[in-house]
């Protein structure tokens, strides 16, 4: 799923950066009289009403999650939408859980590692596919893309066996180290497309000045890849932050879980006393991705405006 998410994100940035598109209902007519203008205003108001209604419907569950996370149990049971008084019990209980904070730090550690490892590794490999010539390159590239067809659950059990043999279970190594090896076929593909859109003349000049391939990669190509670096990093953040399925295979010791798995265990498996605890757990899981998305959005879009990702 992560690869799909990454792909969707790419398209997202592309779309958000777009001018309102040509599809839908083009209305470019010059209104010469007042009645046409009035009609346009009415249409506009209706459009705003429709958009607001959809937005309310889509955001409502998450607004409710936030509001119930600070709601008293009685109110929550009554089905109230807005808390009459803010109760922090949910958050307090959540953070007081013996494994919660430690799993939060562990997850942040994994996230930070992957946010650097995935883009760097992917860009390094992509440089080979985009900028070097060697026999077998096409074959390796095809073999890499073919891995996209292998469902993740097929490799999950043998990967567990492999990591168990290396005594990597109950450590964060299975969730971090593999990312040093390419960082995912989709990411390499994105980087390669981006690199191919960078004019080769710059490198040619550096080559004549005697820069070796690694220097050309690190000093010329990589700095030009910042938008896609950022983009892949955000994808890596998203997938390692919310992953609860892989840890289910690699962790048996509840004190060593990642955050998403801990939340799963606390809320779903063990069950919580108060609704607010579950909601607080949900809110806290959602805050960081939402923050990253909103903060970086402009920057990501600016980068994609270069128009290179489409290849």
């Amino acid at each position: 799923m992560t690869q799909r998410e990454i792909m969707a994100n790419e398209v997202l940035l592309d779309a958000l950066s777009a001018e309102p598109a040509a599809g839908g209902t083009p209305r470019k007519g010059k209104d010469r009289n007042a009645s046409a203008r009035r009609k346009r205003v009415v249409v506009r108001v209706l459009q705003y009403i429709l958009l607001t209604a959809i937005a309310l419907f889509l955001v409502f569950p998450f607004a409710l999650m936030v509001s119930q996370s600070v709601m008293s149990q009685e109110q929550s049971i009554r089905g109230d939408l807005i808390p009459t008084r803010i109760v922090w019990e949910g958050y307090r209980e959540l953070f007081a859980h013996e494994d919660y904070l430690s799993s939060l730090w562990r997850t942040l550690y994994i996230v930070v590692f992957n946010v650097f490892a995935v883009p760097l590794s992917a860009s390094l490999c992509a440089y080979s596919f985009a900028r070097t010539r060697w026999k077998g390159k096409e074959f390796v590239f095809a073999a890499m893309l073919a891995t996209l067809m292998i469902p993740g659950v097929v490799t999950q059990v043998p990967l567990y066996q492999l990591f168990a043999q290396m005594h990597w279970t109950n450590t964060i190594l299975p969730l971090t180290i593999p990312n040093l090896f390419g960082g995912g076929a989709v990411n390499i593909f994105l980087f390669r497309q981006f690199m191919r859109s960078i004019p080769y003349e710059l490198e040619e000049a550096a080559k004549i000045d005697g820069a070796n391939a690694f220097k050309r990669y690190a000093l010329i190509t990589l700095p030009l890849c910042v938008p896609i670096l950022l983009f892949v990093a955000v994808g890596a953040f998203g997938s390692s932050w919310g992953d609860y399925f892989q840890p289910m295979f690699y962790f048996t010791d509840p004190h060593k879980f990642t955050l998403a798995y801990t939340v799963y265990k606390i809320v779903v498996l063990d069950g919580v006393k108060f609704n607010s605890v579950a909601m607080a757990a949900g809110v806290f899981m959602a805050i960081l991705p939402a923050l990253v998305f909103f903060l970086l959005q402009r920057k990501l879009i600016d980068g994609i405006m270069v128009g290179a990702v489409k290849g």
């Binding site: 958000l16 958009l51 607001t52 998450f62 799963y264 809320v267 909601m279 949900g282 899981m285 959602a286």
Partner: peptide, 24 residues
């Protein structure tokens, strides 16, 4: 802004939205 609001539910991690929806 509307586009972002429409997209917002997508970035919520599965654990969070799962917990939420089973209660709703």
């Amino acid at each position: 802004v509307y586009r972002m609001l429409f997209y917002l539910p997508v970035i919520i991690p599965g654990v969070a939205s799962g917990i939420l929806f089973v209660r709703m």
